[in-house]
Design a protein around this nucleic acid. Structure first.
Length: 539
DNA sequence: CTAGGGTTAG
């Protein structure tokens, strides 16, 4: 499982590189190249760069180090580094490499630009991408089909659809690739009618164009239209199935999603990672631990070897939301390459299942790694402080987040702080805290304060909070969910029910169709009724 | 070694 998919023609490669399947082997080969004086042999250097950047997982840093020591890398090496960086989690490096090329007056070729543009698109860097477009023209690659298609894709996704359209009208209308890319861009923006028109006009439709359209409908919740195309499409692949399954999960038709999955298996279409992610998300939302365990088993059978980070993260989330924190911890420990989401998932899982000490412990463990926390991390940390009544500690983490981690607090963090103070009965302090906020407090913040006033019987402040609340629109689903956590975690089911109503009334689509008790039930039952097989101390 | 479709955390 360590090797990534390879695009290179493997048969023609020297056998030592074909046998290079992990980092250890790579370093051995590298060492022997140096010992034998082959380390300036470009044939080997190209392989070294390609293998560490593109083929092995988690060795891109090594590729960068090696690359930095090559006095005059050839264009293939530059392209490989840019390509690998563009598809890595840090596409900025691809731009930096291109800038370096530019500074050193190294001529890019027709392979260079698609990779650089891919990085711009991924980063949503409209200005940079437009500048790159200028370089494309300067070097005369404008009519190269691949370059032009990536340009269309960039402009379509980073704002200027007019330019994308112009490029498309000019030269690309005979090519199905930019046609469906443009269709996808319109569908993504929610312009389904324009997308559909493009789709209908296509002289030839390949599977991608069908998938683009089905995905577009599914994401907008127009499952009837999606279904119609799904039934019409001449041939389906795993993406077609995934689009439908994800669509059903998105609009909370979990049974339909599971049914489709069954059908998929019956006809012998092999589900992949994306299928599993959707299904895990369905289990998490349903709180269906049994089904979640089934999916977990299926995943284990499917991929022998390491659990991928992304699947591991989804499993942690599923187990946490289904109240099985031990299983979540088990999965967490099994993930080899933990990323910030892995830590966030387990920290949030512990926090919302009521394990405050475990949460803070986990955060301290995280600090000992090289993974930097982000704003989501602190939602978990602060929620834990709030749950456990750790006011001083909550303040400390709030400051730590700003001063040491350079993360500006957003509404969710403020919400946690107000909840923490409110629970502790420090109502006046909570009120002052709201006034000290750098952003305009939203409904959740006021409602949190209101709830606390009710609990502690402060009528005056409650009135004030209520007034503020009345003047605010209620439309952001994420914040309502946080609030419902706040309510539910206190055991105030009445409050939770109110929030749910508020969500329905304000047209919040998420969580429609079933009650909060079902959604958070298992996890919260566990917490509220204190069946504690997992002990806080031993994370 | 080029381009397009599906994805996890609150």
């Amino acid at each position: 499982m360590i090797r990534k998919r390879s695009g290179i023609n493997r048969q023609r490669r020297p056998s030592i590189w074909q046998k290079c399947t992990d980092f250890r082997a790579l370093r051995q080969i590298h060492a022997s190249l140096i010992v034998n004086g082959f380390n300036s042999n470009f044939r080997h250097l190209r392989e070294l760069i390609f293998t560490s950047a593109m083929e092995l997982m988690g060795t891109i840093e090594y590729a960068h180090q090696v690359f930095a020591h090559i006095a005059e890398p050839d264009i293939f090496m530059w392209n490989t580094m840019i390509r690998a960086s563009a598809q890595s989690s840090n596409p900025v490096k691809a731009i930096a490499l291109y800038a370096q090329m530019d500074n050193r007056s190294i001529k890019p070729d027709n392979f260079t630009f698609p990779f650089v543009l891919k990085a711009c698109t991924k980063l949503f860097w409209a200005k940079t991408g437009t500048a790159v477009h200028g370089r494309v023209v300067k070097f005369g690659f404008q009519s190269n089909p691949s370059v032009r298609n990536t340009l269309i894709f960039f402009h379509a996704n980073c704002g200027d659809l007019k330019i994308a359209n112009a490029l498309f009208e000019d030269h690309a209308k005979t090519d199905v690739v930019p046609w469906s890319a443009l269709t996808a861009a319109y569908a993504k923006r929610g312009d389904l009618n324009v997308a559909r028109q493009l789709f209908d006009e296509m002289p030839v439709r390949d599977l991608v164009s069908w998938n683009v359209m089905i995905t577009g409908y599914a994401k907008q919740g127009e499952m009837e239209s999606a279904r119609k195309l799904f039934d019409e499409v001449p041939k389906r692949d795993v993406v077609t199935w995934n689009a439908m399954i994800a669509g059903y999960v998105l609009c909370s038709s979990h049974e339909q999603a599971l049914e489709l999955f069954e059908e998929m298996r019956k006809i012998g279409e092999r589900p992949d990672e994306v299928t599993m992610l959707s299904l895990l998300s369905a289990c998490a939302e349903l709180g269906d631990l049994e089904m979640g365990k089934n999916i977990h088993r299926y995943i284990s059978e499917m991929c022998s070897g390491d659990l991928s980070t992304i699947l591991g993260n989804a499993l942690i989330d599923m187990y946490s939301k289904c109240g099985s924190i031990e299983k979540a911890l088990e999965v967490f420990r099994a993930i080899r390459d933990k990323d910030v989401t892995s830590w966030n998932s387990i920290i949030g899982g512990l926090a919302f299942n009521g394990y405050a000490e475990g949460t803070l412990d986990m955060y301290r463990k995280m600090q000992r790694t090289t993974i930097r926390p982000n704003e989501i991390t602190f939602v978990g940390v602060l929620a834990a402080c709030s749950h456990a009544g750790k006011v001083d500690e909550g303040y400390r983490y709030f400051d730590h987040m700003r001063s040491e981690c350079k993360i500006e607090p957003d509404m969710k963090h403020y919400g946690c702080m107000v909840d923490m103070l409110g629970r502790a009965g420090l109502l006046k302090e909570a009120f002052d805290f709201i006034h000290s906020m750098k952003i305009e407090p939203n409904a959740v913040v006021w409602r949190t304060l209101l709830g606390a006033c009710r609990v502690h019987g402060n009528v005056e402040l409650a009135k004030l909070a209520n007034e503020k609340l009345l003047g605010i629109r209620k439309d952001e689903s994420g914040d309502y969910i946080l609030l419902s956590n706040v309510y539910a975690s206190r055991g105030e089911w009445v409050g939770a029910e109110k929030v749910r109503k508020l969500m329905v009334e304000s047209g919040v689509k998420k969580n429609r169709g079933y009650s909060l008790v079902e959604a958070y039930g298992n996890a919260l039952m566990h917490y509220l009724f204190d069946s504690k097989p997992y002990r806080d101390q031993e994370t």
